[in-house]
Nucleic acid binder design. Structure first.
Length: 275
DNA sequence: CGACAATGAAAAA
DNA sequence: TTTTCCTTGTCGC
């Protein structure tokens, strides 16, 4: 379930369980990370970090040598599962397993799982835009790119160089919440609209980290508030438009539309997001 | 730009 | 068995 909130939550969860100062057993049952796992095996996890959809696990080197990082990107269907010790026998798709006396965590199907240096980690940060979930993020940096682009705002929100951590759900939902036509060009987004989008993303994604899922429906639009039967969106959270094509808009009743945009499924309400 | 590949698993057909 | 997916590099026109 990989959008920025998931990765930040994973950074917290990995740290809470394994950054204890004690040794961590590191292995790669699937094999593709075996060499690096052997180097790290038994080292303490010193810290974790997330930037956009990138996760970094910091391991102490041997005394005197530098910290090294495991760089993880879940891609479209990478998955992480935590559990209590003793760890069960790993299945052959587990790329990375961490285990200690209290718990274990398995990583499957990531696009990236690689051992990198500090310099390589810096390079990754450098090519990512500001992340609404990071305290050091500067929204003006993102807006500077948006305002001089003829690309659609829907595509810009998914461009990790512009803003890091937003995925297909948050882009569709935040545009709905602000009544913005997804096909509007970046240059036509006003400073006020950008400020509102950014502030909303900060709030929504923080909530996403806390709850470990995406909810975007305002209290006044919940089924209870609208006097409609309760509903369950098929990805776990409650949303306005994501994956609701051909269904009626919760707010205006218009049929939710979908289209391909930059190889991804875009969803929007033609009634609420006119223009 | 679009097409495509790369990773796993779960849902749909 | 096929399709789908909360991603993103790369390659070709």
């Amino acid at each position: 379930m990989p959008e920025g909130h998931t990765i930040h939550r994973l950074a917290q969860d990995y740290a809470a369980r394994f950054a204890t100062g004690g040794p961590v057993r590191v292995s790669s049952p699937q094999g593709k990370f075996s060499d690096a796992a052997a180097l790290l095996d038994g080292a303490p996890l010193t810290g974790t970090e997330a930037h956009g959809k990138h996760l970094f696990l910091g391991f102490a080197g041997s005394p005197g040598s530098a910290e090294s990082w495991v760089h993880i990107h879940l891609g479209l269907f990478g998955k992480v599962t935590f559990g209590p010790a003793p760890a069960p026998p790993p299945t052959d798709t587990v790329r990375l397993r961490l285990a200690d006396t209290a718990s274990y965590v398995d990583l499957r199907g990531p696009t990236t799982c690689a051992l990198i240096t500090d310099a390589e980690k810096d390079a990754i940060h450098a090519r990512l835009g500001p992340d609404p979930l990071r305290p050091d993020a500067d929204p003006a940096l993102a807006y500077a790119r948006v305002r001089r682009s003829r690309t659609t705002i829907a595509a810009l929100l998914m461009d990790q160089k512009v803003i890091a951590g937003v995925g297909n759900v948050y882009r569709a939902e935040v545009l709905f919440r602000h009544g913005i036509d997804p096909y509007r060009a970046g240059r036509d987004i006003t400073p006020g609209q950008w400020d509102a989008i950014w502030a909303d993303l900060v709030a929504l994604m923080r909530e996403g980290v806390r709850d470990n899922r995406i909810d975007t429906v305002r209290p006044e639009h919940t089924p209870e508030a609208m006097g409609r039967p309760p509903r369950v969106d098929d990805h776990g959270g409650e949303v306005y438009v994501y994956r609701r094509a051909t269904q009626p808009c919760h707010v205006c009743g218009a049929e939710i539309r979908t289209a391909d945009l930059a190889a991804r499924n875009l969803f929007w309400c033609p009634g609420c997001q006119g223009g």
